[in-house]
Amino acid sequence: MSANLERLIRGRQWLDAGFAVLGAAMVVLCLGTLGILIADLVRDAAPHLRPEFLNSFPSRRPEDAGIKSALVGTLLVCLVTAVVALPLGVAAGVYLEEYARKNRLTAAIEVNIANLAGVPSIVWGLMALGLLVYKLHMGRSILTAGLTLSFLVLPVIIVATRESVRAIPQVLREGSYALGATRWQTVSRVVIPSSMGGILTGSILAMSRAVGETAPLITIGALSYIAFLPPAPITSAPPFVSFEWLESAFTVLPIQLFNWVSRPDPRFIENAAATGVVLVGMTLSMNAVAIVLRYRLRKKYTT
């Protein structure tokens, strides 16, 4: 009897060890592939990884061509996206979780927002082309691009906000209400500060996804050769701020990258690889910021 049991347990322990080995192998496989890809990218990019690459406009000569306009374009488009999508998304998420009644309508809205997060990005591009470019005549501008990417990340931000707001224990809300706080006081002083970590993490991850988006911006007609910068946002004459840059034509890093890859001259591949390195660096550093922020906020508010 006990010998039988021993054999049975030994078999299970083998299975246990087997799964651990399999899992470790998978991790090595995934990370190894990623590592090789990045190493290859960096090797191809090596000749261009110097400051001039960031500070030159695109050119016919691959050794002179840089990503100045694409980098500025990406940063400005991201700025518009963040300014539009963050307040809207956080407000919508908080409203749905804290204010809206729980009924069939809100349940339907909830499901549909989750679905919107899964709509292919090129479909958003088509919608933006029809609505923003043709109907509202906003042109193929930085503003149009920023709004397009806002559509794209808005559902993600709403879902992230809802989830982190929902994770706040009900006793915290009751504690606030029990002291005589109104709903807005409870939301603004207890709920939002407590869920800030989750909201920021979700939002930054959504933004880092937006940085790499290409299809919707090609759809709305982003140019691929831009040898100028948009008008500066700060001017020397009053009122010292200008929003002309919003109407400027633009290009972004992934489009520049795509353009170089599709050139017949193989030397442009190196430029494309260098752009890829910059892009990967940008998204990785945004993710790193998200992790640091989450860690900091958790430390600040809890133990």
Binding site: L172, S176, A178, A181
Partner: peptide, 20 residues
């Protein structure tokens, strides 16, 4: 009820300090 709760407060079963 908001005014009422300023006069009649509550302490809960599980300590619920705000994360502040």
């Amino acid at each position: 009820p908001i005014l009422l709760r300023l006069r009649i407060n509550m302490v809960f079963q599980k300590p619920n300090p705000f994360p502040k």
